[in-house]
Design a protein around this nucleic acid. Structure first.
Lengths: 110, 110
DNA sequence: TATTTGCGTAACCGAATGATTACATATATA
DNA sequence: TATATATGTAATCATTCGGTTACGCAAATA
């Protein structure tokens, strides 16, 4: 059963990285691929998946295809998570504490 | 390569439904399973995955195990999507228009 | 026109996923 | 104590996933 929705699209870390990359500026397929270790066809597949659920649109320009993101396709996922925000914000203290934890962890990984 | 992070946890629709269910109140494993068509062991597996990435904690009570959600584990996913919010909010109009589209679609599916 | 470049896609592969059934174990109950 | 209940887990299976290499084709270029 093929699920191809936004949640599945952002489940893969490479696809999340592609989204981050394209949020800066549109890029050709090869330009996208040049940022990753994996092969170009692998990137092509990821782009196809992202395209199929609308996150990325493709514009042909000569022999290149430029990829841009459609940020509004992220809204359903945002809204789904957002409905639990009041639950984790119940204690603001613990929320801020958790944010600090995350920041500490990010610092460690640098 | 086993990825067991929050994005992968919420990628499966059954697991999202489990989270929704448990956001109402803690439930025993069987109570959770009774809300779904699939077998109890299948639910057990989903709960295990949710537990492994911290979204669900389990409290033993007699021969039952009560499941509760830990909403703050959703924060990293929320923050990741949230960083693109300004992109889709660039034009408030189109944002609201998109919300309307979603509502229309939800009405259709009812 | 011949060649290079950008890209999609098919064929293939190993690993992960999501389900099932069958069984084991601990706890409650008759 | 014998039985029923709640649950975890192992074995198995079909399907999906994410990667690779090989190839094809259209567009740019020498």
């Amino acid at each position: 059963m093929i699920r191809r929705d936004i949640f599945q699209a952002i489940a893969d870390p490479v696809r999340r990285d592609i989204i981050e990359l394209l949020s800066q500026e549109p890029l050709s397929v090869n330009s996208v691929a040049s940022h990753f270790e994996i092969s170009r066809p692998a990137i092509s597949k990821h782009l196809k998946i992202l395209n199929e659920c609308g996150v990325v649109t493709l514009r042909k320009e000569g022999r290149e295809r430029y990829c841009m993101i459609e940020p509004k396709t992220l809204i359903p996922a945002f809204l789904w998570i957002d409905q639990y925000r009041n639950l984790w914000e119940d204690r603001i203290d613990s929320f801020e504490q958790y944010l600090n934890q995350i920041q500490q962890k990010n610092k460690k990984n640098e």
